Amino acid sequence: MAVGGMLLLAACDQPAPTAPAAVTAAPTAVPASPAPFGTAFQLPTAPAAAATPAAASRGTVCAFPIKLADGSAYEAARYNFNWQQGITTQQLNTRAGTLQLEGQVTIAAGERSLVILHRADTAPTLEVTDLWPPGSTLLIDPLTGASETRRADGTVARQLLMDAVGDTRGMPAYLDIKSVDRQFDAAGSYILRITTNTAHEGKFIWSFQELEIAIGEERIVQRTLSSGKQLNLYYPTKGKYSDYTGTVVVQANTVTWPLQDGGLLPFAARSATSAAAVDKTEAYPAELFSSLWELAAASCG
């Protein structure tokens, strides 16, 4: 079945699930890959040694295959775990190794899910924040540096695209894009936010410098002239640009646009000066995460 440009491999085509006895025989280890896809295993999630001495909580891991439109095939897995009250670190054993979960002591306790597309190395630590609340699922693609948070009802709450820092060939850090973040409210309205490596301080060097957000084929530009005057411009898919009349919030090293339309479209960002382009991100892989979410639900329930 093809979903979002990807071929979903049905769980019924895989070997029969591992018998329960095989799970209880080694309750503290994740079964070595390869293992029957769509099979749920007991997975230990123990607080780190420096954290509160609460008893280890247990979750489950369900592995499943995913085949991309280019024919490449990978393993993905969903991990369910219980974040415990009053701790700041917790270890989660994944099929790629141990992942250190970190969060503030005030983070709400409760069950959460993590889906990882295992096609690149995962960062050794992952932050648990208020934007990943109990009952929700965080999906991660380490290769693109992108992630998506889904609420318990399956709606998208957040889409985050990380960009490498220090890739601007010596240009100022305030034009070095660090991340692009889209956050949705329950009604479907959203904000798009570009975060740069540092805030701008001092004089403006060029005739202008700008940060641009692209939503599908349309673009919104926040341009600052050498005098410090700011212009907000809108570039439609076709035709001439015009003044952008929507809200733009510039604060420290972030630029934020509250928006309503285009929430299903991919987004990207770039920075530039009057002399040259500086930095840009790839487009957010919206179809990839839609397929990953649907396949995790179909394979793991």
Rank of each mutant, 00 (worst) to 15 (best):
S72A: 15
A283E: 10
W257L: 07
A50H: 11
W83T: 03
Q251D: 10
L143H: 04
R151Q: 14
L43D: 12
R182D: 02
H118G: 12
A25D: 15
N232S: 09
M6N: 15
T247R: 03
G239C: 02
P142Q: 04
T245S: 13
A16I: 01
A108W: 05
A2Y: 08
A21G: 11
S242M: 05
R270A: 12
I191D: 13
T137Q: 10
F37V: 11
T94G: 15
T281M: 10
L211K: 04
R119S: 09
T273F: 07
G4T: 06
L161H: 00
S207D: 13
S274D: 11
Q222I: 06
S179M: 01
N253C: 03
T18I: 12
A187M: 04
I87C: 03
L101Q: 07
G202H: 05
P31S: 01
N82I: 10
D70G: 11
A73L: 12
W257Q: 05
R119I: 04
S290Q: 13
E111Y: 02
D13N: 09
L92N: 10
V105P: 13
A48W: 09
T144G: 11
L225Q: 14
E148W: 00
L43Q: 15
Q42A: 13
K238V: 06
S189W: 06
A16W: 04
P17E: 06
Q91E: 11
P266M: 01
Q84K: 11
G110C: 13
W206C: 12
A214C: 06
E212F: 06
Q183F: 08
Y79T: 12
V3H: 09
G170I: 01
A54P: 01
T94W: 13
A109S: 14
A19M: 04
Y234T: 04
F267C: 03
A26R: 09
V249W: 01
A272D: 06
T273P: 01
C300W: 01
D279H: 00
P65N: 14
P36G: 00
S179T: 04
A63R: 13
Q104K: 15
A199R: 09
T52W: 08
G86C: 07
